[in-house]
Design a protein around this nucleic acid. Structure first.
Lengths: 348, 348
DNA sequence: CTGTTAGCGCATTCAT
DNA sequence: ATGAATGCGCTAACAG
């Protein structure tokens, strides 16, 4: 086997010559132009086949001034929910002519870098930003660079977006607990200021507090615990909660990941779920069903799916309106929630 | 705010004219060529800055005949382990000048498509294939197209690869169980023929059988259950196993995902883990530690990390050797395994 | 050191 | 309907 026998790259000129036509004609059959007779088309097609010619994506891109690829920016890997959204993205990209370029963000600095880089030169034809909030300056850069952007799970008034109502979701979660008869309900979530300014945790808390208020239940600051968005932090916070003189009978975690930490803490202390403690999460990631975690389901896959479709669409049409789709949230009752042990149920 | 004010794309010619130099000089400063005087370099740099010029990736790619992007082909999403490998890939790509293009495979047909497409025209400068086995024809196509390919978690004699010894891993798992005193050990894994011809499950089984043989334990066919690589299938298979007249005291699952199904089945039946049943998995994905699952740890992140490094390296150097790196496996003992209930422990 | 020129491979007018 | 010419924006080889 000989090395380095670099294949003679067969170009559109080779095809043209071999078929006794001009390169223009070859280009036309390549792009299904109707402006070519059936006979010559077939002939060119045959030559293309025998020569095993494939147009160079590089040349096509330069000539058409399109990268034929779309970028997705997100904090992947740290949050299982984002990977699920990516699945939805991939599903529609795979069926298109576009390549999928993923930009993983790990730090705010990296985020700003990528935000700038994607606006600077036409690196991508369109951009999907997941759960990351761009500044006005970023948005302006993209706009003046002519790069279409769609947001998923985050907001900016000037950008099309796919979102859910986190406040409502928090309300639903609390409502479920209240209906079960719980009155001592705690919250485990993210801190107010996170590196990426995620707001979903706060919004969900707001919804919960609203529900409590409507039921005439005063807010107890000691029932409000925040920390890093991971299992171990949530576990530690829950230990504090359960060590209280008057511990909660139910805990609403701002995410399933954190709910896992809550359940782990309960297990540490020999506290049964749901008999002694009810736990409800948010997101409905895959493990949630395995662990029978009651949670608020949000359409993760669909958010990516619809987001990319919106992007593709806004790349064709020059729509001046900025669409905003809101996806529905659903309570999924499993076996991590139940009426409190020492309370008359259904006092609602 | 006016729409459509498409930014005048400032090119290398604009810079050249403005700086009173030739485009060649501009190109040289762009590519840090030493063949340019410090003064002119600085001058050009200034002009570039004031004009806010950024070279077009598209034009660079066509001219240099490099896509500046590398592709990763894998069955993402269905197996958590693959996502973890992707993390390692992303970590090194992010630090390079390359873009990361993700090709998700869902069916064998899709796999063959992508294998061909990546060989046809220079779509990517290099390819990382995870857990998918290319045919000789695929390998030949890539070779003659001059596309460097590195394999992760799969084999082909002509391709560099990053692997683990699954047979040894299976052996280690069984050995752990045997040392705990188990003699009735069952296996839950993938079928012999899977859509993608995954072989890790079979290899791990082979290792297990070898360990059993060395301990003089006869193989019991009824202890060998195979089915789809997911939690629910494993759960169903385990129900069959535990309904046997002489049920196993320990189960080795070919993956953590399947081990979850095994544990779920045990929970269904009120069978305690590890008191009544020991369970050991493979991979050490994130949930494994949460569920205290004893498992065989394999360096997933590192496999992607080293794989890409190997690829990047083989894209520079024209090495005729085909490297094969083997990563170490480690038993991680957690609390899903224990000596069998009715057996004298440590009979080894 | 630096300017000029010729590609890279295809899309797209513009004539015919 | 089709061929020839021009351009996309940059790199690289070649003079000077």
């Amino acid at each position: 086997m000989f090395n380095g026998e670099h294949p003679v790259p067969v170009t559109i000129y080779d095809v043209a010559k071999q078929a006794n036509v001009g390169v223009g004609t070859v280009s036309r059959v390549l792009n299904n132009s109707p402006r070519v007779s059936p006979e010559t088309r077939q002939h060119v097609l045959d030559v293309i086949d025998t020569l095993n010619f494939r147009p160079s994506p590089l040349a096509q891109r330069l000539s058409r001034r399109k990268t034929l690829s779309i970028g997705v920016i997100a904090v992947f890997f740290t949050r299982p929910s984002v990977v699920e959204r990516l699945r939805g993205v991939e599903a529609v990209i795979a069926a298109s002519e576009y390549d999928l370029i993923v930009y993983n963000i790990e730090t705010p600095a990296k985020r700003d870098d990528i935000f700038c880089a994607t606006a600077a030169n036409r690196r991508v034809d369109g951009l999907l930003v997941i759960s990351l909030t761009p500044a006005d300056a970023d948005v302006e850069r993209w706009r003046s660079a002519g790069v279409p952007v769609v947001l998923v799970d985050t907001h900016h008034p000037a950008l099309p977006r796919i979102v859910v109502n986190d406040v409502l979701g928090g309300y639903q979660a609390a409502q479920h607990l209240l209906e079960l008869g719980h009155r001592q309900i705690a919250f485990v979530g993210d801190p107010i200021h996170t590196a990426f300014n995620f707001t979903s945790s706060q919004d969900r808390l707001a919804g919960m507090r609203q529900a409590l208020t409507e039921h005439g239940i005063a807010w107890r600051p000691e029932y409000h615990q925040t920390g890093e968005h991971d299992q171990q932090a949530a576990r530690a916070l829950t230990h504090q909660l359960l060590a209280l003189d008057d511990p909660p009978t139910a805990i609403f975690a701002a995410s399933d990941t954190q709910a896992l930490g809550v359940m782990e803490a309960a297990r540490d202390l020999g506290i049964r779920v749901p008999e002694d403690l009810s736990v409800i999460g948010f997101d409905d990631i895959e493990i949630a069903s395995y662990l029978n975690l009651t949670t608020i389901h949000q359409p993760l896959f669909e958010s990516g799916y619809r987001g990319i479709n919106l992007l593709l669409q806004s790349m064709d049409v020059i729509d001046s309106e900025t669409p905003r789709e809101e996806l529905a949230l659903d309570l999924v009752v499993r076996s991590s929630t139940a009426p409190p042990a020492h309370a008359s149920p259904a006092l609602v």
